Amino acid sequence: MRLLLTGGSGMVGRNFLEHPDSSSFDVLSPASSELNLFDYHAVENYLLQNKPDIIIHAAGRVGGIQANIRQPVRFLLENLDMGRNIVWAARKAGIKQFINLGSSCMYPRDTLNPLKEELVLKGELEPTNEGYALAKITTARLCQYITSEDSTYQYKTLIPCNLYGRWDKFAPVYAHLIPAVIRKIHEAKVQGKNTVTIWGEGTARREFMLASDFASCLIRAVNHFETLPAMMNVGIGRDYTIDEYYKAIAEIVGYKGSFVHDHSKPAGMKQKIVDISKQIAWEWQAKTSLCEGITATYKFFIENYVAQIVC
């Protein structure tokens, strides 16, 4: 099977390519210099020339709460352009199978958790990442519309919970919660700081999955595409408070200081955990515990990023 993976240099893409079972596919993972997702005609020509059997769209402009607040235009336009171009070019090129990656940011901010797939577009979005969410919703809807017009085109969307792991971004201006906290607490330990600041009250709840586990889900999605639901959450089935993530990371890093809360900073949605009923029925579950995942991610951070940090 010839498989086109967009975003092969990102966290999801690299974890997919590192998965031992990915070698069973003929994987195309072009760099942006080879496939410019912002150029529709270039995307369509690439698909016509290479004729993949299935596409996994993992490319995207991603970042944590700081990056989304600072650059909403960029997060909206870039993700919208990439999503629209690859999905519509795939349809025009006659590619029948497509796996689009959404985000739990697509769900309304004030709704009951766990978040069911049917809740998309059922309420107001979280303002801190609204642009990114709108782009992801539009791309998912385009996939649904294409399938509804012609059922021979099966364009499906997976909605993962928050991800972390190898190849994550650890720079504060771009990082999501876990990599940002790993770096913050590591630096506090090295610099001998007595306290570390947590944004908000620390009571907001989040669900995180190790990216290598999600890569395993993607492998299964390709191999069992026919049984894959049209839209499906992918999660671990439990969440933790922000305070609990800080404490877990501090224990693994070996930081002995204390935490203070900055109530003036935004914390985002009060809770965000996805409903995994469809995933369980599809017979897949993540295997890595939070402690194992953070330990592996901290090891990757030490081996690949610490030398670049000026403390």
Rank of each mutant, 00 (worst) to 15 (best):
C291D: 08
A31N: 15
N36G: 06
V234L: 11
H176S: 14
D81E: 06
N79A: 04
L210C: 12
E149N: 14
A307H: 15
C311L: 15
L158Q: 15
I219R: 00
I219H: 00
W88P: 12
E117M: 01
I56S: 05
L158M: 06
Q308C: 06
I309N: 03
L48A: 08
G131C: 07
L3S: 09
G202Q: 05
L218F: 07
A90D: 02
P229R: 00
A89W: 03
M1Y: 00
P108V: 05
T157Y: 12
Y174R: 14
D110M: 08
N79C: 02
I65F: 10
N113K: 03
C311V: 09
Q71Y: 10
L125N: 00
Q97L: 11
T138C: 12
R238Y: 10
P30S: 08
T128W: 10
C291S: 15
L101A: 12
C291K: 12
G13A: 13
K156C: 10
R205K: 07
A230S: 12
T295P: 11
D239E: 10
A204F: 07
E226T: 03
Y245E: 02
Q279T: 04
I219D: 05
D53W: 02
F75G: 01
A42Q: 09
H263K: 15
L37G: 05
P114A: 06
D150Q: 04
S22I: 01
S258D: 13
T111V: 04
F259A: 00
V173L: 08
E34L: 05
V87C: 07
F214R: 00
M11H: 14
I185S: 02
H186E: 15
G165N: 11
E34D: 13
Q71R: 12
V27Q: 07
R166W: 08
H261L: 14
V253G: 08
D243P: 06
L48T: 05
I294R: 14
Q271G: 15
L158Y: 13
I95E: 02
G64P: 02
G192N: 03
K270Y: 05
L163P: 07
L4G: 04
S33C: 15
R74F: 04
V253T: 11
E126V: 05
I65Y: 12
F214Q: 06
R166K: 13
E283V: 05
S23E: 13
L47C: 08
G293L: 01
R74G: 10
P108A: 12
A180H: 10
D21L: 14
L290Q: 05
E201W: 14
L5T: 02
I65A: 12
N194Y: 13
G131I: 00
K92M: 07
R206I: 04
I182A: 01
A93S: 08
Q285I: 01
T203G: 14
K256E: 14
A211Q: 02
L121T: 14
T195E: 03
Y240G: 09
A59I: 01
A67K: 12
V310R: 13
D150M: 09
T197Q: 11
K189T: 05
I86Y: 07
I159S: 09
A93K: 02
G94K: 05
K122Q: 11
Y298N: 08
M1I: 04
R109P: 13
R141Y: 12
E283L: 03
A67Y: 12
E226Q: 15
D262N: 04
A281M: 13
F300M: 10
D275S: 07
I54D: 11
A140Y: 03
Y240T: 13
N194Q: 09
N15H: 06
V43E: 10
P20I: 01
W282L: 11
A188F: 03
